[in-house]
Amino acid sequence: MAGSNPNAKPMNLTLKVWRQKNRNTQGNIVDYQVKDISPDMSFLEMLDVLNEDLLRKGEEPVAFDHDCREGICGSCNLFINGRAHGPESGTTTCQLHMRKFSDGDTITIEPWRAAAFPVNKDLSVDRSAFDRIIQAGGYVSINTGGTPDANEIPVPKEIADRAFEAATCIGCGACVASCKNASAMLFVSAKVSQLALLPQGHVERKTRVENMVAQMDIEGFGACTNIGSCAAECPVGISLENIAILNQEFLLAKATSNNLA
């Protein structure tokens, strides 16, 4: 296999995995042994091996969220050894490789924890709170019609780059999972500043931030205390600067919007 290390020795690991039948039951940590794990495997492939073992034994496999396995969809969400997406920074769980661990290691695997992110089953959590925040205003309304010409609306390169940086947020929820307040401010700020920076987003600029922040509060996320855990654990490096932009946008909107309610 290209890029693999032929000298890498397979590993045996002890996994401490959170098992929970459904939303209404209590969960607990269950110990599993996995053998002959290649250091070239991704963390999710290692869990696939565990699940194949469990299926062979006739046991219930471990439920976990995953989709693209390329680090771009934001589906995978595991709290590994006390860190969101594991020990490596700037990485989603699917892009975390077993070479970051050593033979004989014990690895604790838990779901995201937050009142607004209830556990569906095992390691799979319900992040639809994020969807509802986006539905409250994280979009640009465009009337259908002919395709607009490219570069019809000029956007300075520097602004486009900053908006793109904010747009790289994949909505995985690592910010909420690692925040001691379970605050969704980094996620909301990435979406708000991305659209506030671009001219297309200006039309709905004030109602957007008012509605998204209101929905964020309704969902039961905590308030930001600027401790910075979110940005440190963000797999795509969304910066705290976005939270400052969100605060500015919120104040500006509240002070000047026509919304009296």
Binding site: N81, E110, A115, V119, A232
Partner: peptide, 26 residues
């Protein structure tokens, strides 16, 4: 108090928050 309740009733078994934020900020 609000922020603590937003964390949810079930906490992490293992949480190395000291690796991503300072003690005094928390």
């Amino acid at each position: 108090i609000k922020n603590r309740s937003a964390r949810g009733s079930q906490g992490y078994v293992s949480n190395h928050i000291e690796q991503n934020s300072s003690w005094h900020s928390r």
